[in-house]
Write a protein that binds this DNA or RNA. Structure first.
Lengths: 340, 340
DNA sequence: GAATCTTACGCAAACGTTTGCGTGTGGAAA
DNA sequence: TTTCCACACGCAAACGTTTGCGTAAGATTC
């Protein structure tokens, strides 16, 4: 196998200095036209590509954005990445994606690895474990080393930095309101445990909507799921023999599972029970009946997050101590699961 | 904001040389215990992390694997990445993921970018456009620069390198056989256009299975879809008034859409028509009825691909001119869509 | 023919590491 | 007092770039 060709090799072959080659390739007028052409022809022939690593070292920047997400096999997060890539590519940035797998340790490792020379800044949605542990030292350290961080979706209130979120509570309220508006009054919520920030917020939105309708909060109408793997059994038990007319699920999987469980329990969607989910993904779209959901506009989130980060990266620090929180609007995607 | 702390800064503060600091941090006995401790304490205090970029430059390797996939919002590809990450993390490699978005140009750009210093080798599934154009110069060039490439799933026969694939034809045959074994005889296939290698292979497997049963090939039983966005209309027209008892779809979306279309046309699955898909993803698992599929074992593919690549990376070239093709077994995941 | 100006190129430093080898200091042995 | 040996450390080169500045050779001017 050939080795990668460097300026030095070209210089040697052509019997000129390295700097001459470098300048020639940059079309510097300092170099004679003749030499320039010769060098360029040679470089092309040997398929010369400047070594990014050396450039990064020299420029003290990598032109790379590090994205760390809790799960890679997850429709919402991948759509966000799509948005990040769009902006990044436009602005000449590279995107490196790492998955923390919801593990605190892996999040720390990934972050430190990327921070030590591979990325200029981060776009991050924290792992479950991190939210639970409340240990944010890795993020603080990264920031204190001068690397900007943009948090999205699963954010951390205690950390002061740019953030991109949706108004989860408002979205949940919108969902619940939709159910109320079509006449449902016995609405249950299937949500996550409270330490997941978005789960808690969505629960709050649900409660707020009920309150506005003077519907009392009933504890037995709230299911908080810890172990996603076992959600079907939990949902089945929760729903059994409950006199309800609507389910609000805080994610796709819960919504789909609820629908399935209900039909097993002899109820039909949407006639007996209306269902609304959160996160507009593939499942909701293709399920039968197709599911009404609150769309989080993942791609928009990615776009905004990338813009915030690149702004920070490119403004010459100066007024850099200003942090913004962008709230992306959610919207209701009405489908068949709520059509009475 | 603070700047990143370097060896040089530590050296200056402690009034020793850079090399002393470097050696002290590596616990070299060349340095007195006293100095070592002082340096280490200082480094810890200032949260020193060696700069990977500098290391990469020095070592002429990055300990990073570049993964390029056609789509990031795609369950199968993300499971493959999961497998790659597993192995990579074990062996101390970093994983960089880039999406080509099925664009030839973006594939080339990503590859060149990563090749110029960011990755030691590649795991790649080529873009649709690349298969269509049959322009593989970027892959050839990368390899000729000494960087190993492992192709997976959507591979290219003309390129000589390590490959990880499933036996698509065999998988399709298995699927068709399953339909035949439960008594279906009028089986249609919904597949992709021929230039997608896996689509063609699966079509071949389907035909082979029919032949073994002495069932004549009927052109009107084969639907080749080019524009995925419009597949529902195409499938609907294709299925209308056709006397069939089974559908074999080469991916999840086609399978789900076919099911939907059939129910709209008044047929029930699996009673009137059995359905089997390819790629065992979220949709198949959660759909009602749940869909029987051929599992591609994406994670296994990722694991094998990563192992092949790391082997190449770490063997000292020598017998490096040996390329292997790993074929991952497919398996039938039987669910309700084929239960008579 | 000398002075000056161009032109075309090379030198060297810098980015942050690692590491083989050279070296100054001190103490111990003779 | 001299010689020798550890010990503890520093020097410098290398990885591949970029770029300001210095400088040779040739061309131009008077």
């Amino acid at each position: 196998m050939k080795q990668k060709v460097t300026l030095k090799q070209i210089a040697k072959e052509l019997d000129v200095s390295i700097s001459t080659v470098s300048k020639a390739l940059k079309d510097s007028t300092e170099i004679s036209l003749d030499t320039r052409q010769k060098v360029k022809a040679f470089a092309k022939l040997y398929n010369y590509k400047p070594n990014n690593i050396a450039l990064s070292l020299k420029n003290r920047k990598t032109k790379t954005i590090g994205v760390i997400i809790p799960e890679i096999v997850h429709h919402f997060f991948t759509t966000v990445i799509g948005g990040v890539e769009k902006v990044a590519n436009e602005k000449g940035y590279n995107v490196i994606i790492c998955s923390s797998n919801n593990s605190f340790d892996k999040e720390v490792i990934n972050m430190e690895m990327l921070a030590s020379g591979s990325a200029d800044g981060f776009i991050l949605s924290v792992a479950k474990e991190t939210q639970l542990k409340k240990d944010y030292h890795h993020i603080q350290e990264t920031m204190s080393q001068g690397m900007p961080v943009v948090l999205f979706d699963r954010i951390i209130d205690e950390i002061v930095c740019d953030k991109v979120i949706i108004d989860d509570a408002k979205g949940a309220q919108m969902a619940t309101n939709h159910l109320l508006s079509i006449g449902c009054r016995n609405i249950v919520i299937i949500t996550t445990v409270d330490y997941i920030s978005v789960g808690k917020l969505r629960t709050n939105g649900y409660l707020r909507a009920l309150r506005a309708y003077d519907i009392p909060e009933r504890e037995e109408f709230i299911l908080k799921i810890e172990d996603v793997g076992n959600c079907e059994a939990e949902i089945s038990e929760f729903l059994l023999n409950k006199d309800i007319d609507a389910v609000f699920a805080v994610n796709e999987l819960f919504a789909v599972t609820a629908t399935k469980v209900l039909s097993e329990q002899g109820k039909t969607v949407p006639n007996d029970v209306a269902i609304i989910g959160f996160t507009d993904g593939i499942l909701s779209k293709h399920f039968i009946p197709s599911l009404t959901t609150i769309s989080q506009h993942g791609e928009d989130m990615g776009i905004r997050a990338a813009k915030l980060l690149i702004d920070k990266l490119e403004c010459d620090d100066a007024g850099a101590e200003e942090y913004r929180t962008v709230i992306i609007d959610t919207s209701l995607v009405e489908r068949k699961s709520t059509k009475k």
